[in-house]
Amino acid sequence: MSKVTRLDEGVGAASGAHPPLPAAAGEATNVQAIVLLPPESRLGRVTGTVWRFLLPVLTIFALVGVWWLAVLVMDWPPYVVPSPADVWNEFLDKRELLPEHVWTTLGETLQGYLLAIAIAVPVAVMIAYSRFLEATIYPALVALNAIPKIAIAPIFIIWMGFGPGPKIAIVVLICFFPIVIATATGLKSTPDELVELVRSLSASPIQQFFKVRLPASLPYVFVGLKVGITLAVIGAVVGEFVGATEGSATSSSPRVRTRTPRSRS
């Protein structure tokens, strides 16, 4: 076989059977750029902002409307499903009760939430940076999270009494886990090429952390914080149900209790 014919076959192969060699190009279109770009025009941006605020408000109004309509159509007795108007009147009646209790609950929620962040983020950093801690702390946390927090709430009351302490503890316990998981996941999922990039610039571990790993993890961290804050409110209310003298849950729980047979006897 002469050189020339072999060369021809080579070229034939290049254009036919072996696409990877000459051109594997064109496959990486930038999906991100297409998805993330909002329709841009100055007018579009303004109406966009208005819609962003208006849409949730309209949604809430619509839901209340559906509720009201349902009560009217179905004719449920008000002690089973009160209409929005009944709820509003009750709220106006008792409005001097609310601020104080809401304040207490809000305080517990926020204190617990901030404390949870303050503990969870460093723990997440340790888990993300140390194989050993990942192998030790992580499973323990998962196991701990499997315990229903509501079930252990009374124990906190026994330990810490009836003050705000046990409620804050329950809040911390309940929203700690999602924040740790999200932050650790975020810190560990820094794209390899970004890590390699800062490594190639001989960045110190501190620079690596603050310039790349931490900012890259923020989307995950915020998911954790978002889940955390809703759970924090639940945690505070649970704490109050179990044993409290003030806070928003106390103003709803006595009414529940008066209807239970035991408190009547």
Binding site: E193, L194, E196, K211, P215, L218
Partner: peptide
């Protein structure tokens, strides 16, 4: 080093991306 993927930091502007080595070094 330069890779197949641009490895730009998405939270930084183009200019700040270019300045990254200056900050790190």
């Amino acid at each position: 080093l330069m890779f197949q993927r641009s490895a730009l930091l998405p939270w930084r502007s183009v200019f700040d991306n270019v300045m990254l080595p200056v900050e790190i070094l």
